[in-house]
Simulated scan of single mutants.
Amino acid sequence: MNALDQTLALAWRSLVQVRRNPWELGDYSIQPILFLVLFLFVFGGAIAGSPDDYLAFVLPGVIVMNMLFVTVYVGHGLNTDLTRGVFDRFRALPIPRWAPLAGRILADVVKQVLCIALLLIVGYLLGFRLATSFGHLLVMVLLVLTFAVAFSWVMVLVGVLARDPEHVQLFGFTALFPVTFVSSAFVPVETMPEWLQGFVQANPVSLLTEAARGLMNDDGAVAAPALASLAWAAGIAAVFAPLSVWVLNRRLARG
């Protein structure tokens, strides 16, 4: 229980920091809304015939894309603490080594909920209507958050390995862009070259998007892509969580 209290306190610390850096809040609010509006009105007519028809297709994809991008700030904040000596203070405290990492990820979950809520509200204002039930929507949110928690460990590792916070963002966004856009988040898989379709269908971004799309629009299979997404999440967490803690301990040991 002490470790849980310490994790919650460190998560609150990460959230309170937003007040001193209001521009960070724009990355969680303004940026995803801009992505949704731009994709909708620039590509909607070409892909679906009209923005109205494209909205139900693209909204789940933007939610998943933004979820991945927000995880970059977990690594960015962690690297900032490391380079500024904050972790040296943590080492002097009677807390588990994993508590600062878990606190960062827990704070990220709160920010993820805010982003998803904003996108759903803006989507509603643009004309989106849920074709299923509130329970299905809640399952979609939980599925996306579960994947976000698992994938955050990848960015924790990047944050520990990177030289400075700028390199975290550079590597994180550079790596995420091809994985995100070479998926079914924004265009149907069948419109892509045949040699690319196999990779796109196995891409966890595509699987998570298809599950979210089915839960929101009731227009496709849900169980198979949802279970595959959870399998990807479990595999990512099983590899990167212990690896991140091990690399962090080595970095702290070197001073």
Rank of each mutant, 00 (worst) to 15 (best):
M1F: 08
D5T: 08
L8R: 07
A9W: 11
R13G: 03
V16L: 14
R19C: 09
G26F: 06
L36D: 01
V37I: 13
V37F: 11
L38P: 05
F39K: 02
L40V: 07
F41T: 06
F41V: 11
V42I: 15
G44L: 00
G49K: 09
V58R: 01
L59E: 00
V62G: 01
I63L: 14
N66I: 05
L68Q: 02
F69I: 02
T71C: 11
V74H: 05
N79I: 03
T83L: 15
V86I: 15
F90V: 14
P100F: 04
L101P: 00
D108A: 14
L114D: 04
C115S: 09
V122H: 09
G123M: 05
F128V: 04
A131T: 06
S133D: 09
L138K: 14
V139C: 10
L143H: 00
L143S: 01
T146L: 15
A148Y: 03
A148N: 10
A150S: 11
V156A: 01
L157W: 04
V158C: 04
G159K: 06
R163M: 09
E166A: 14
E166V: 13
H167Q: 14
H167K: 10
H167R: 13
Q169T: 14
L170Q: 09
G172R: 01
T174G: 10
A175I: 13
F181P: 04
V182M: 15
V182C: 09
P188G: 11
T191S: 13
P193D: 08
Q197R: 13
V205R: 01
L207C: 04
A212I: 03
R213L: 02
G214Q: 00
N217H: 15
V222C: 06
P225F: 02
L227M: 12
L227D: 09
A231Q: 14
I236S: 09
A238F: 07
V239D: 01
L243I: 03
V245N: 08
V247R: 12
L248P: 00
L252M: 12
